[in-house]
Design a protein around this nucleic acid. Structure first.
Length: 465
RNA sequence: GUGGACGUAGCUCAGCUGGUUAGAGUACUGGAUUGUGAUUCCAGUUGUCGUGGGUUCGAGUCCCAUCGUCCACCCCA
């Protein structure tokens, strides 16, 4: 008998239960904050019609999309036909389809959040996934959408990452209109060429000044050294305070229309972010941020961890002029931001920034004496009634084995109710983490255990600061 | 899609210029008398040396092919 090797394809993340608990806690925190800011949930199918998904032909997306075909459809398909269905590679395209399809039933501005898995045919590489969670929020307007929403999203992001408690971070902002205006002034008028230059400039913080300069003056771009020097000087700016950022924008001088517009938007957004309650220390103007996707037209965002720049962007997004131009005549401008939860989790774990795994099971009722099982089950029921996640040992076994089980399963509190305790009307509570145990009156158990659990949670919250 | 490195227990690796029956740590399993895990001590299990072929008296080691993994680029969460 030979076995098939039990394995998953590369690029998927599968976790052990305690790690899954940590990952889920992360998703919970993200969801909680999205809802706190008044965003509503939607879900869309993992599969969409290929024709809906592949609206931009021949690009990166087509190279990376996974097609789906039932066996029947596969046999019926003619040579050269694309499969009818494909897996979504992000949540923005399905959102566009969703808004176009349900336009008349939606209330605008439409504020939705969506946390689901997406699929990309990436070549395997560290920290890159073929199946991963995206957590998106977008605000979609009908005909118009105030730039003030561009300032609202950073406030949500600030709230999320503060809650996640993963150390100092900075939400970096820029504006594509400003950048295009500046490039125009340098004599770069062609839109596509501008995009390519911006993508190159975007690598400044990752690859360094020299590499970007070499590339821009090299054969692919062939820009004049003087223009490149001017450009690199411009995009090298990083603000260290709101005043600093505003002063830089002020100092730009007259300039063309695009530059003026970009500056006005950025100025308003930066000021409003402050008004939305984000501390100055957590956001900055970074004139090299561009984002690769061409559909961004105004504000762009990228969030990084101050202490771990090698992790790169943990959240990014931006403003787009017309979300669903492929599906409807209506003009639907929007602004959105996305957290790649799978990568974020993985990176945090690699960097050692995740706290030790802890089970969702809070207490284990040990089985001291098989004859007393009903008593143990009753105790477990009482704890559950009080909101404490409790498992009762139902199979008899050595006590040492039960403790070992609790330890390995990550359960912190073990409750022992043996002949001694029964005689005294008490319960012994062992705290495996503290390596300590105490006896408490049976009647006081729930209240006492609750206090212990709360204290444990509070300790956990504070030990990372 | 383009270019580069590496494949030895579940994991991290050692294995000399080819030479007996391929090793360590870790993990896992069992034990160290009464109602206590992790820590300590003792014992045990673990491999078609990625796969196929070649050179050789002899290959984990050298050669070829193939598959797989990882890294860089492209792109991106």
């Amino acid at each position: 008998m030979s076995f098939v090797q039990a394995r998953t394809m590369p690029g998927v993340l599968e976790l052990l239960p305690l790690d899954q608990v940590a990952f889920q806690a992360m998703l919970d925190a993200i969801r909680r904050n999205f809802e706190r800011f008044g965003f509503l949930p939607i879900e869309t199918p993992v599969m969409e019609y290929s024709s809906v998904l592949l609206t931009k032909q021949g690009g990166e997306t087509e190279r990376q999309v996974y097609f789906v075909q039932s066996t029947g459809a596969l046999q019926a398909a003619r040579e050269g036909d694309l499969p009818e269905l494909a897996l979504r590679f992000d949540l923005t395209v399905p959102l566009a389809r969703y808004v176009a399809e349900h336009e008349h039933a939606l209330v605008f501005p439409f504020r939705r959040y969506q946390m689901q898995r997406v699929y990309r045919g990436e070549r395997a590489q560290r920290g890159r996934f073929r199946e991963f969670y995206q957590c998106d929020i977008d605000v979609i307007g009908k005909d118009q959408l105030s730039v003030r929403h561009d300032a609202e999203l950073p406030a949500v992001i600030y709230s999320v990452f503060r809650d996640l408690d993963i150390g100092a971070f900075t939400i970096q902002l820029n504006n594509r209109k400003l950048m295009r205006g500046f490039l125009q002034q340098l004599g770069l008028a062609d839109g596509e060429r501008q995009g390519a230059v911006l993508r190159e400039v975007d690598k400044l913080d990752k690859r360094g000044l020299d590499a970007v300069r070499d590339s821009l003056t090299g054969v692919d771009f062939a820009l004049a050294p003087a223009a490149v020097a001017q450009l690199l000087d411009f995009v090298g700016f990083r603000s260290h305070s709101l005043q600093h950022a505003l002063a830089r924008l002020q100092a730009l001088g007259e300039g063309n229309e695009a530059l003026q517009q970009g500056r006005a938007e950025l100025t308003e957004v930066l000021q409003l972010i402050h008004a939305f309650g984000v501390p100055e220390s957590h956001y900055a103007l970074n004139l090299s941020i561009a984002r690769g996707l061409d559909y961004y037209t105004g504000t762009v965002y990228e969030t990084t961890l101050n202490e771990h720049p090698q992790i790169g962007s943990i959240c990014s997004g931006g403003r787009y002029e017309n979300l669903a131009s492929h599906y409807t005549r209506s003009r639907l401008p929007g602004v959105g931001i996305s957290i790649g939860a799978t990568r974020l989790y993985w990176q945090l774990r690699e960097a050692g920034l995740l706290k030790g795994a802890r089970s969702t099971v809070q207490a284990l009722v040990a089985q001291m004496d098989e004859a007393e099982l009903p008593r143990y089950l009753e105790l477990a029921t009482e704890l559950r009634g009080a909101g404490i996640n409790t498992e009762a040992v139902v199979e008899p076994g050595k006590l040492a084995r039960q403790f070992k089980y609790a330890d390995r399963a990550g359960i912190r509190f073990v409750l022992v109710l043996g002949p001694d305790e029964i005689a005294k009307g008490t319960v012994t509570v062992k705290d495996l983490r503290k390596q300590d145990q105490f006896e408490v009156a049976r009647a006081d158990l729930v209240a006492t255990l609750r206090v212990e659990i709360e204290q444990a949670a509070a300790m956990r919250g504070s030990d990372s600061h």
